[in-house]
Design a protein around this nucleic acid. Structure first.
Lengths: 258, 258
DNA sequence: GGAGAAATTAACCCGTTGGATAAATACTGT
DNA sequence: ACAGTATTTATCCAACGGGTTAATTTCTCC
């Protein structure tokens, strides 16, 4: 079929040095390939991430991963393992990455409402920048977390956000900024939910609503809405808080005449 | 492999009348099978719904669908079509069902806060009662709504909720119950998001948090949290509204000391 | 009661796919 | 320079899986 053709075209072409040690008088013969175990492993995992997020676990094709990685299929098994192990490695990498970025977020020195805003913005932007993460989570949940349960590594990678939220909420209640001491786990899930669902389901929602939920304006409106909703709930200053949406444009969209 | 065995075991056994027209003097020979085109079609679609929601599009197996339906594989193609057409039929059926139930929800005669609460409770309970719907949406979104885009049927099935919300919000602002005239599409998406994400991602979240998010208590807390969050945002009565959570138990959980 | 259509069964086809085996090539230390 | 090991390529294959073909059985209408 045309499959072989596609694979060849999509194939990452590894450039191999044509001459080795060009300084030598006797020109060495052309190398057919080079060793690069670390690079190979990284390229395999990156290709696998793309493949699994684009097609899910069952839909992913081992041959395509190999082709995208510019490798021979045998290399996947040599460097990582079989399809399932490859998938789990990708999943663990994805969690590792987000946890690491989460830890970089410093909310301590911000006043509570601003801290919550930052939290929402980070979540939103991270999901926007890493759509494969959303897909991988969806895939894993369709599998009822069968693979994740086997990963002691992921189980030990706790998100720092729950504790961050707990602290911020406590501070907010103390300072009088917040009216209610919400459960940090619930709030964490809700903040994730507002962004996650919008983005992960944007394809079907766009069809249903007959408009593109991912264009610039729509995304601005969404972010403003989410920030307004959560902060209004916490502070009780609904009208005022929906107003502080960053841009006049998005503010107008959120606080529109109904 | 053991596959054949599994299929046989899982197979829906269609009971066939052993005797036809038992009143006749001459006992007719035993029927090997009976005709039942409508029933067959329904059983096929039901089996397909289970299979697609359990395994996704690529992971679904045509043979398993046939076995579950108590049918021959050939029947799928005879009554519905190939795998893709089968999948689309299931998807359309799922949308048809939720739209129909949505239309049954009457919010006109309720005061605005109560109407919003009902809306959230309906969404939450519908997702709880129809987990396959969540899975199907996830699957379709992983496919970037490729199939849904081809369905004129679904495109024309608008949810009545957006207009319901628009009316309710308008009434709420007029009556002074609500402080802010939120975009009904955004609110619709947010309400769906809060339930959808929690349930569709409960598997991975349960692993991450190390506890079962689907047990009775957790579900009560979640519902109370969602209602509190949305109503607090709309009314600005944060503390008061988080308090009106139905049960004392769940209320205590939501408005807990941090 | 029987002919023709509708519904169902049974068996087969063939490209795909995950995985395995074996051979070749590139490095590394001595 | 060369032996030994690590890395990569080149083939192969048995099972699977969607889809098809052809034969069988039931039902309906005259």
């Amino acid at each position: 079929m045309t499959n072989i053709l596609k694979l060849t075209l999509a194939c990452y072409t590894r450039l191999v040095g044509t001459q080795r040690a060009p300084g030598l008088a006797k020109a060495k013969r052309t190398l057919k390939w080079q060793r690069d175990p670390e690079g190979m492993r990284l390229r395999i995992l990156e290709a696998a991430k793309q493949e699994f997020s684009a097609h899910g676990l069952a839909g992913a094709r081992v041959d395509r991963i190999a082709a995208k990685a510019g490798a021979n299929k045998r290399m996947l098994y040599y460097h990582v393992g079989n399809k399932d192990e490859l998938y789990l490695a990708v999943l663990e990498g994805a969690y590792d990455k987000i946890r690491s970025e989460e830890r970089g977020l410093d909310l301590e020195h911000l006043d509570p409402p601003e801290a919550i805003r930052r939290l929402i913005e980070f979540t939103w932007n991270y999901f926007l920048r890493n759509p494969e993460f959303l897909s991988l989570l969806q895939t894993e949940n369709l599998a009822r977390a069968k693979h994740l349960k086997k990963s002691t590594k992921v189980k030990s990678m706790h998100s720092p956000f729950v504790e961050m939220i707990r602290t911020v909420v406590r501070r907010g209640v103390d300072s009088g900024d917040f009216q209610v001491a919400v459960d940090p786990v619930q709030l964490y899930i809700s903040i994730a939910a507002l962004s996650f669902f919008y983005l992960s389901n944007s394809a079907t929602l766009s069809v249903i609503f007959g408009r593109d939920l991912l264009d610039k304006k729509a995304k601005e409106e969404r972010l403003a809405h989410m920030v307004g909703l959560v902060l209004a709930a916490l502070t009780g200053q609904s009208a005022a808080l929906f107003e502080i949406a960053k841009t006049p444009k998005s503010r107008a969209a959120v606080v529109q005449a109904v």
